Computed example of a mutant assay.
Amino acid sequence: MGPALAAAVLAALGYAAGSILQAVGVRGGSGAAALTRSPLYLTGLGCDGLAWLLSLVALRRLPTFAVQSLLAGSLALTVLLARAFLGSRLRPRDTAAVLGLVAALAVVGGAGTEQPSPTVGPGGQVALCVAAGLALVAVLGLRRSGSAAFAGLAGLGYSVAALGARAVTLPDAWSQAWRVGLEPVAWAVVVAGVAGTLGYAAALEKGPVGPATALLWSVEVVVPAVAGFWLLGDVVRPGWWVPTVAALLVVVGCSVVLAGSPALPEEA
């Protein structure tokens, strides 16, 4: 397993562990003030942050469709961890979805060979910046929209953030790291990430976690895959196109099933 693939797998595990820790932390407190004093809840947030950083590492060397699909696998890990540590019920369809997701991710992992981050032209950079800005404006402006609309916007925001993280130009030396702040695409990543976070929070506020999470991950798998091929020139291993497309569809389907699982914590 290469370092980029290992980072993506660890990111999925980090997101799953963060969900479980936050769920346990919520059980022991009442109100937002109590959560800020809960070691488990704060550790869960830290796991989410570390997972996000690991996903950025993976995106530098792996195509977007591979990383986003592997991150969607965090749903399977969350369901299994919830069964083990929270005693949550696991339906037969959840077991089948976990097995299907693991098989599909094995195909995606095999199809997404390590490749250098792309060089995106001015047009692509403008497109990413505009998309990030529109996502944030939409999330802030559509106050009366339902949970599905916000979940879809959250998925779009996170998708743009993933695409931008792969496209941003990084300096060769750490001493030049400050130059990242001059990159428009780097700011697009931040803006899109904020849009995704606010959108998902609004989706959970307005509706149940299952449908919102299912729509979020469906968008996060499909949109970066299509845009990665078209905008970033992501490459699939020769002869793997049909298995890859089929595997991506399985990832989406299994994610929808697992998002409705009673084993999924409300904070996931």
Rank of each mutant, 00 (worst) to 15 (best):
A225H: 12
C129I: 08
V194M: 02
A111S: 08
G109I: 05
L45W: 04
L182T: 08
A84Y: 05
A16M: 07
R60K: 12
V180P: 00
E205W: 06
Q68H: 12
A195W: 10
A227L: 14
P92Q: 09
T213D: 03
L163H: 00
A246H: 08
R237Q: 01
S38E: 11
A173C: 00
Q115W: 06
G73E: 07
D172H: 09
W230E: 09
A167E: 13
C47K: 12
Q22V: 05
L59C: 15
G123C: 14
L62V: 11
L216C: 03
E205S: 11
L56Y: 14
A106V: 15
L215R: 04
A186G: 15
S74M: 05
V235N: 03
G29P: 11
P208K: 14
G239K: 12
S147G: 09
A186W: 07
G155I: 01
C47H: 14
L215S: 03
V108A: 06
Q125R: 15
L128S: 07
S19N: 14
L71W: 09
G164W: 00
Q68C: 11
G133D: 12
G112A: 02
L215P: 05
P122V: 15
A6E: 03
G46V: 03
D48V: 02
L45Q: 06
V242Y: 04
L182I: 03
A246K: 07
W52V: 06
A23F: 00
A148T: 12
A84C: 04
M1V: 02
S147I: 11
V245R: 05
P122D: 15
G14S: 01
A66W: 04
G141C: 13
E205T: 04
L156P: 10
A202S: 13
L215E: 05
F150N: 09
V168S: 05
T36G: 10
F150A: 05
S218C: 07
F85K: 07
G73W: 10
V185L: 00
C47N: 14
P92R: 02
L50A: 15
V242K: 01
V9C: 13
T169Y: 02
R93Q: 06
R179F: 08
V102A: 06
L10A: 09
L163G: 00
S38N: 12
T213S: 13
L248R: 12
V9I: 14
P122H: 15
A16K: 09
S255C: 02
S74T: 04
P262C: 04
A103M: 08
A227I: 09
S147R: 09
A82S: 15
T213R: 10
